[in-house]
Amino acid sequence: MTETSKELAGKTAIVTGGARGMGRAIAALYARAGANVVMTGRTRETGHAARAAIEESGGKAIFVTADQGSNADWLRVIEETHRAFGRLDILVANAGQSFPVPTKDMSLEDFRRLNTVNLKGVFLGLKHAAESIRRHGEGGAIVLIASIVGKIGAPGFIHYSASKGGVRLMAKAAALELGAEKIRVNSIHPGFVRTDLSAMFDEKTLAPLVPLGRFGEPEDIANAALFLASKRGQFITGSELVIDGGWTVQ
């Protein structure tokens, strides 16, 4: 894409977890493509820094402090979106957490804490975004950031598996349910991508094992998220886009 192609001009997009890592790269790219961007996240300071960066490069963005797992926060995010930009066209449900614990030592509290954000939070996002997109009746695009762990196993991450496997299937069910309204729903499955979250993995040891020889960059995911949300992805729904440098085909 060239800097001048404003393929999301006139569109408004919510990007959850939009202040850091992949979310921040997606928000920045969407803004460059002409979208009004609503970034959400739990940390006010990081959020406003990300918003300021977008504004400095000529984009339009707001930041709303919100927890993806909270229904009340979602109502507020949608309200702020409509107040600032008057409509919603795109949701990228990107916020998520991950931390390893062997299954037999994992507390139900840890399991639920992660799934409230990663699984229930995506359900709530789908529900509220679909309702909001429905208001103008022109259709829209929803991109759910899952993981390769929604498709293959990862020892010590059973809670994360549950959340990402759940998201993977929600995208398909939602694609079928919302297709008639021209709301497309797809999932992206990143492998190792260099973010705060991936700092727990030893890149030196793992990167050579990735067929493409490196960890992904947040921009690799952002490019896919733009493709799926743009007109270029107009016939794609219920699809899984795996972006892992070839990790899962080995």
Binding site: L119, A174, A175
Partner: peptide, 21 residues
Amino acid sequence: GFPDAIAYCATKGAITAMTKS
């Protein structure tokens, strides 16, 4: 996927993936 079954699909997708880990 299955229409009108987003919540159920979420839970069963979760079970499919948990099984692998």
